[in-house]
Design a protein around this nucleic acid. Structure first.
Lengths: 187, 187
DNA sequence: CCGCTCATGTAACTGGTTACATGATTTA
DNA sequence: TAAATCATGTAACCAGTTACATGAGCGG
């Protein structure tokens, strides 16, 4: 049989996707691309990317081509037909279980435990959080500018960034109101 | 000096937070609590929780008490004053870098590469994604019901779930419109 | 009494990070 | 020519997962 390959990890699929989308591309450029992204989901470390790319090649999902040899070598990769199919499989439908899950928002995790601070500190925390979101917005806008007008999918990402930020801001604001209301109503 | 302890990991802080919030509580109950949460961020595996709890105890952040001994033992933990301070430190302000970052949304990652599917498949994917969000909503609502009326912080989480879901739905819808528009306008 | 849940635990693994190294090439 | 960047690589580590084991107690 041999058909039972285990599914790609999120990082593997992401790198394969980038190679499919921007290939021919070098691991070094993949790393820079990831480092410039506002997301901190992955470190984009050499220790992750280079071995991963070699693995994808061994799987036959991507093919390498030496662009400049020996001294200052540079190897670029592009997706193979098999790689494209693997990416399509990964995308689905059906959507894999980890594709459909609640988002992970570190601010949400923290609000869960805001009760460990006193009322005054809670308000300070919320102010700091709002300021943090301003920083995030800057980074997102930077990213958007560099990758502007790259088709409907980048536009979709841009739009996601806007909506997401708006929602988080609104929520932080509501949490503030909730807490002041709770503080006034003594137990 | 010895004052330069490295910061808590997200999981460590989360578990410490749960112990502070619900303690005295057993590692077993922590696991169940996490398993019931709609988030799939952590596996809540025994291999993660039990060693972690012992680590927190060794750090002096929590204290144990044997609730039932030897046969069918049950050990419960509660937060110490030091643990509470550690939790407050972790929360901030200042907010740690990983606290203020864009959310991680696996659907967003996937939309990035939707171009690998043809137009028809793209629409099917979006339909499947929307259906997936319905599932997420069910899970979130279940969770909300079990933990209803537990103070302003749970209320804040509930509200976050609502807003988040609404935003993701809206976004998926917009992506659909974006793509149909792009499909009609040839090149 | 059989199967399920309670409750704790560990050994092996894995995916990814940190931190470093190398050498060529470009820029100030 | 010194410093920064390009480009690739690896060794040591770490946090968390998978999968399994143990034994007590409870419900049908």
């Amino acid at each position: 049989m041999a058909k039972s390959k285990k599914p790609l990890s999120e990082l593997e699929a992401f790198v394969l996707g980038l190679i499919w989308q921007f290939g021919p591309i070098s691991p070094y450029d993949i790393r820079r691309h990831m480092q410039r992204s506002p997301s901190t989901q992955w470190s984009a470390s050499a220790g992750a990317i280079y071995p991963l790319v070699r693995k994808l090649e061994k799987l036959g999902f991507i093919a390498s081509k030496a662009e400049r040899t020996d001294p200052r070598k540079r190897t670029v990769y592009r997706s193979t037909a098999k790689g494209k199919r693997a990416l399509q499989m990964w995308l689905g439908p059906p959507l894999s279980p980890e594709a459909v899950t609640v988002t992970y928002d570190p601010l949400r995790t923290r609000v869960r435990f805001l009760g460990v601070l006193n009322s005054g500190e809670q308000m300070k925390w919320l102010t700091a959080a709002a300021k943090g979101l301003d920083e995030v917005e800057k980074k997102v806008k930077d990213w958007q500018q560099t990758y502007a007008q790259s088709g409907p999918f980048v536009l979709a990402l841009t739009r996601n960034g806007e909506l997401e930020l708006e929602t988080r801001r609104k929520w932080i604001g509501e949490v503030g109101k909730l807490l002041t209301a709770a503080a006034k109503r003594p137990t």
